[in-house]
C-alpha cells in the first residue's frame, strides 16, 4: 500500500525512496521529483544557459528515472545516478543545439544576443547590479568548454564533492581536480574586474 507524500520527509534517504518506487510506490517517485527538480534545473540551466531547454532536459531526466527505475542499484548514490542522467542529456542537448546552429545560418549569434549587455540593461532602473553580474558570470560560464563548464557547475554551484563529481562524469578524481582548477583560473581571469568590484 503506497504511503501518502507527506510521510516522505527529509529523514528518508533518496535510496530508500527509489527502493520504494521500484516496489511500485508512486508517492515515492513524486517525493523524488520534488526533492530533485530544482537542483537539477539549476545544474542544467547553468550548463545550457537557457531555462526552457533546461526544463525540457529535467523533464526527460525524470521520465528516464521512471522508465529505468529498475536499472538503479543501491551500490551507487541515487544523487550520482540522477545527476549522471541529467548531465548526459544536457550534453546531448548541447550537441544537438550546436548541430542546429551549424546548419542554420539565421541562428548564428543568437546565444551571444541572449546575454548581450545593452546600455539599457546597464541602467540601474532596470537591472540591479546583482542581476547584471549574474548575467556576465553566466555568459562566461557558457564560454567555457563543456568539460570545464560541467565540473565547475557541479563543484562550485551545486557544491558537490570532488568524489561525487568524479563519479557523475566518470573521470578520475585527479582529472576532476585539475579541470576545476583550470576552469577557475580561466573564469577568474575573464571576470577579474567584476570580481574586484564585488569584493
Amino acid at each position: 500500500m503506497p504511503e501518502p507524500l507527506q510521510k516522505f520527509d527529509k529523514s528518508i534517504s533518496d535510496e530508500d525512496l527509489i527502493e520504494k518506487f521500484q516496489r511500485g510506490d508512486l508517492y515515492a517517485y513524486d517525493a523524488i521529483v520534488k526533492r530533485y527538480k530544482d537542483q537539477l534545473l539549476n545544474f542544467v540551466f547553468r550548463f545550457l544557459g537557457n531555462q526552457e531547454e533546461a526544463e525540457d532536459v529535467v523533464q526527460e531526466t525524470f521520465l528516464r528515472v521512471y522508465r529505468k527505475r529498475h536499472a538503479y542499484q543501491r551500490v551507487a548514490k541515487f544523487s550520482t545516478w540522477i545527476y549522471t542522467i541529467a548531465g548526459n542529456l544536457a550534453r546531448t542537448e548541447l550537441r544537438r543545439r550546436n548541430r542546429r546552429r551549424f546548419f542554420s545560418l539565421s541562428s548564428l549569434g543568437v546565444e551571444d544576443k541572449e546575454y548581450e549587455i545593452s546600455d539599457e540593461m546597464l541602467s540601474p532602473e532596470r537591472h540591479t547590479n546583482t542581476v547584471l553580474s549574474e548575467e556576465i558570470i553566466q555568459k562566461e560560464i557558457n564560454r567555457l568548454s563543456p568539460k570545464f563548464r560541467e565540473v565547475i557547475i557541479l563543484r562550485d554551484i551545486q557544491e558537490l564533492s570532488y568524489e561525487e563529481v568524479s563519479k557523475i562524469i566518470r573521470v578520475p578524481i585527479g582529472t576532476v581536480k585539475s579541470r576545476v582548477n583550470r576552469a577557475r583560473l580561466r573564469l577568474q581571469g575573464r571576470l577579474k574586474h567584476l570580481l574586484e568590484k564585488n569584493k
Binding site: 529535467v58 558570470i137 565547475i152 573564469l187 577568474q188
Partner: peptide, 24 residues
C-alpha cells in the same frame, strides 16, 4: 580572484521549475 570567484558562484541565485512542471 579564485577565492572570490568561488564565493560569487555559490551566491548565484537559483531558479525554480515552472508551476506546471509536475503536471506536464
Amino acid at each position: 580572484g579564485v577565492i572570490n570567484l568561488r564565493h560569487n558562484l555559490r551566491r548565484l541565485s537559483t531558479i525554480q521549475t515552472s508551476p506546471d512542471f509536475e503536471t506536464i
